[in-house]
Design a protein around this nucleic acid. Sequence first.
RNA 1: CGGGGCGUAGCGCAGUUGGCUAGCGCGCUUGGUUCGGGACCAAGAGGUCGUGGGUUCAAAUCCCGCCGCCCCGACCA
Length: 475
Amino acid sequence: MAERITPREQDFSQWYLDIIQHAKLADQAPVRGCLVLRPNGYALWEVVQNELNQKFKETGHRNAYFPLFIPESFLNLEKDHVEGFAPQCAVVTHGGGKKLEEALIVRPTSETIINSMYSKWVKSYRDLPVLINQWANVCRWEMRTRPFLRTMEFLWQEGHTCHETEDDARKETLRMLDIYLSFLRDVFAIPVIPGRKTESEKFAGAEETFCVEAMMQDKKALQAATSHYFGQRFAKVFDIKFQDRNSQVQYVYQTSWGISWRILGALIMTHSDDQGLVLPPKAAPTQVVIVPILQKNKDNSAVLEVSQRLKDELSKQFSVILDDRIEHSPGYKFNEYELTGVPLRIEIGPRDLANNLCVLARRDGLKTQVLLDQVGAETGRQLDGLQKDLYAKAYDRLKSHTYVENDYSVFKEKIEAQGGFYQLHWCESRKCEDAVKEETKATIRCIPFAQIREAGRCIVCSSESKGRVVFAKNY
RNA sequence: CGGGGCGUAGCGCAGUUGGCUAGCGCGCUUGGUUCGGGACCAAGAGGUCGUGGGUUCAAAUCCCGCCGCCCCGACCA
């Protein structure tokens, strides 16, 4: 097994890739920029699907599926949209051995194909709202790829909705952003800063883009999810009209919102350590592993019997596996489950059994001895504790590496030396935004909802500013 | 597309001023002793040295072509 790589800012990507490989989560396929999710890695994606599907259902959304190939002309209808995506598209020019009359785009996102259907489906205010989500793969031909964060093909979820009024659509945009935020906070234990994107950072074709930004262990930012308000821009080019309650024909107001498997990268880069993956209990496909201490060629029946009983009991509440393989030593197993991020390990050996005890070992190192008849309650307590502690640790990191700064040269030095998020005054001009990017590689991650609103001077040009925005280097 | 680097066993690598039988660690197989933090000993299996050509008595090693991969930068979720 290769030597483990300690995380350093400059080789963070190698570090987490190394962990993924150790954890047998994923392989890099021989095709450029592809990533293969092995079965136990896919289980993590299923956690995302299950949690979000539940929330989508609660908010009245339904899942559907739309075609992978999009006629080129569809994409060309919205000017900003095509400018943003055309350079990244994979294009199918031939089929059935012949050159196609019209090329097909492998979807980089599905606004166009979905809206072309919506224009047929929506005729009356009675048809609204349309609240549809799709779980799919999309393709964006990136110049340089990075496992999970930027792959040529990726898995995601994209919601596309139509509403009667601007107000309804705006509410939907923020409601879905909030669902992402609470999912990341409560399940993945990742704290985020919610906010609005600047003109230059917003989605191609959107009126407004909202996002949640997370901070990785190397203090770089990662956009974890986005939600867009489209107004009537797509409705007008795709002709999605309806008769309203006053018999007037008008265009629908729309939104779209998405989260991709890059959040699996975020999960790894937020919590994991040199021992391997660290999964918050609510995100872990396997929450508890029971490791009986066995000896070959000896009678292990007592230990095995208690282990099995414990497994049956705990399985009512948690996802539990019992590793009773005789061919691997306990130490080997301890390591294996640390590598794969199982949040809680229960050790049961002859020594414990003599005292009616067992050992509970949390993935972050906390070990406690527990009476056998209290394991059920204690398991829940330990898992809850780990979930909270992981969030707290990530939250502390986000807080303690977010700085309020007024001096450009200090900011420049600091971000170069230690990364982090910077609350800076900005005059709202594209020019100053670009100047910072040019010099420091930092971009405006968002204008936070909880913006520090105060009079100040733009960090670059010293013109008037009404509030601070968050600058950071990002993935 | 620019700048670096690398292709040798399933994985990670050494060997490269031409030299004799191509090696090490991990993993794998078999046997024994272990077993509460990645066990140890012994015996094995496993190779078109990326590919095509050239030089030579002799090429993983030198020369030329080709192919592939990785890293850094420009693009981006």
